[in-house]
Amino acid sequence: MTPTPAVPSTSGTENSARRAPDEAPAAAIVVEGLHRSFGSVNAVDGLSFQLARGSLLALLGPNGAGKTTTVEICEGFTRADAGQVRVLGLDPWRQGSALRPRIGVMLQAGGAHASARTGEMLHLMASCSANPLDPAWLLDILGLASSERTPVRRLSGGQVQRLSLAMALVGRPEMLFLDEPTAGMDPQARHLVWDLLRAARSDGVSILLTTHLLDEAELLADRIVIIDNGRSVADGTPAELTGGSSSQLRFTASPGLDLDLLRRALPLGFVVVEQTPGRYLLEGEIVPSTMATVTSFCARVGVLPTGLQVGARSLDEVYLELTGKELRG
């Protein structure tokens, strides 16, 4: 696949150009006190969050946490039991006919008819839009030009995902809903999709995506909302959720070191653990003197530390801490 060329404007409204200089942009999505139950199951239980216009929000959570239900309510496919939802200032359930031309939806299942040809499917979507992107350009940029006449049922999983993204983008939406946008894609395709999403965001498109790829969320999102059991358990920028500054030091050495000796050498408040035999973690404010203390300790006990790494907590660690490590159905 070739590098991403210049991307035509993906937004059909150019709101930023029309907005008065002193006018604050309204939120693209406002969710307040959202509830939705299916029988005795509370799929969404008092959820609230906002997505600023022209930004990308990643909605994360285990299977069954309420992500899909929340997104379907925002798209206007499912009705809320209680609470308020506004997308581009509109109620997606009551004002769906006004909202639908302004949004693009990428379904994880693809959404394309299995017997249709790839090019036919994208041209059909383009014909429903007032000012679509060039379907041929989208097919080319997403590596699907050679599959233009291939029936959808014969595409690989990654190709179906790329076609689904093209179908969501072709109408120049103001708002994109993306469900697992890079699932099944190889690394080259993932990076291409990331570039397209960055270009769309730069053009003022607001994006709500769900993903189980936490590195993808950390790389792309301006803001992350983690939900569990239908409720928000974390809401912030990637830096806010992971602690931002360096707060961890990891190193490898002989197993079974006397960590009490190391703790006494460090300032108060440090947490020192042997996570697995021979793999050590320090948590606290990591500064140059901390490194010196660790290497001095290792020299004192006669071991050579390797693989010293300094950084903040990973999003994976934060996510598992908030939602637990047990498998979900």
Score class of each variant (00 low, 15 high):
residue 146 S to G: 13
residue 192 L to C: 15
residue 166 A to R: 01
residue 166 A to P: 01
residue 211 T to D: 11
residue 215 D to E: 15
residue 150 T to K: 12
residue 206 S to H: 13
residue 176 L to R: 08
residue 211 T to E: 14
residue 154 R to M: 03
residue 192 L to Q: 14
residue 201 R to I: 07
residue 179 D to K: 15
residue 138 L to N: 05
residue 196 L to V: 11
residue 206 S to Q: 14
residue 142 L to M: 08
residue 171 G to P: 07
residue 192 L to S: 13
residue 211 T to P: 09
residue 164 S to Y: 01
residue 181 P to C: 11
residue 138 L to C: 10
residue 149 R to H: 14
residue 173 P to K: 02
residue 194 W to N: 05
residue 193 V to E: 01
residue 149 R to E: 05
residue 196 L to S: 10
residue 173 P to G: 02
residue 199 A to K: 01
residue 215 D to A: 15
residue 175 M to V: 05
residue 193 V to W: 06
residue 184 G to M: 12
residue 205 V to S: 07
residue 167 M to E: 01
residue 183 A to E: 00
residue 174 E to W: 12
residue 215 D to Y: 07
residue 171 G to I: 07
residue 171 G to C: 06
residue 161 Q to W: 00
residue 188 Q to Y: 05
residue 135 P to K: 14
residue 201 R to M: 11
residue 181 P to G: 11
residue 172 R to V: 12
residue 162 R to S: 15
residue 194 W to Q: 05
residue 143 G to T: 10
residue 161 Q to I: 12
residue 212 H to Y: 07
residue 214 L to R: 14
residue 176 L to N: 00
residue 149 R to L: 05
residue 147 S to G: 10
residue 185 M to N: 00
residue 211 T to A: 10
residue 208 L to K: 08
residue 163 L to H: 05
residue 151 P to K: 05
residue 217 A to M: 09
residue 209 L to H: 12
residue 198 R to Y: 15
residue 194 W to H: 09
residue 142 L to K: 07
residue 206 S to G: 15
residue 139 L to W: 05
residue 136 A to W: 04
residue 143 G to C: 04
residue 146 S to Q: 07
residue 199 A to M: 03
residue 195 D to E: 14
residue 212 H to K: 15
residue 182 T to M: 13
residue 193 V to L: 13
residue 187 P to V: 04
residue 184 G to I: 14
residue 198 R to S: 10
residue 149 R to Y: 03
residue 174 E to C: 02
residue 177 F to M: 15
residue 196 L to D: 05
residue 170 V to C: 01
residue 143 G to W: 02
residue 136 A to T: 12
residue 144 L to R: 03
residue 158 G to R: 01
residue 191 H to I: 09
residue 158 G to P: 03
residue 192 L to N: 08
residue 148 E to H: 05
residue 189 A to I: 06
residue 171 G to S: 12
residue 173 P to D: 06
residue 151 P to D: 09
residue 213 L to E: 12
residue 160 V to P: 09
residue 188 Q to G: 09
residue 180 E to C: 00
residue 191 H to A: 14
residue 173 P to V: 06
